[in-house]
């Protein structure tokens, strides 16, 4: 894959920030509008996947992504538990809003790292090449 198209490389580099912004927009507004953690995370993962089309090199740290995914999964399990036990007196709306946004963000980042790991694992290590 060394004969990359110049047009695709330039245009993908140009729309990177827009895709990232859109992904975070979908994640952060997931509680009140269509979208949410999973969809936004998939959009963020598509950034890394289109990055492969531009520069197919191995300098992405899959190991640290894997650690990040595990930590995020632990957070996804722990945050609702803590919220459940500590919400006796805090029935204010702002707390619930913060909780929803935090959970969406965690799920989005976890989905993004998970899909990225799946893709790069498939590209670089599967199939005997």
């Amino acid at each position: 894959m060394n004969n990359n198209s110049e047009i695709i490389a330039r245009m993908t580099g140009l729309i990177y920030p827009l895709i990232i912004m859109f992904g975070f927009y979908v994640i952060l507004n997931g509680h009140s509008s269509p979208g949410g953690g999973f969809q936004g995370g998939a959009i963020l993962a598509s950034v890394f996947i289109s990055r492969y089309l531009v520069s197919p090199d191995k300098n992405l740290k899959i190991k640290s992504l894997r650690v990040a995914e595990k930590v995020l999964f632990f957070c996804i399990v722990m945050v609702p538990t803590l919220f459940l036990f500590s919400s006796e007196q805090s029935r204010i709306e702002i707390v619930h809003l913060t909780y929803l946004i935090l959970m969406n963000l965690l799920i989005g980042l976890k989905v993004a790292s998970g899909l990225t790991i799946i893709f790069f694992r498939f590209v670089f290590y599967e199939g005997g090449k």
Binding site: V26, P34, G35, G36, F38, Q39, A42, I43, A45, S46, I49, S50, Y52, L53, L115, F119, F122, V123, G127
Partner: peptide, 22 residues
């Protein structure tokens, strides 16, 4: 719209690139 976003991202971006790489 929720399902539509997920389908658009996964169906036409990620799985297409995955098939092409394969």
């Amino acid at each position: 719209p929720d399902v539509a976003i997920a389908e658009a991202v996964i169906g036409s971006a990620i799985s297409t690139v995955l098939y092409l790489v394969a």
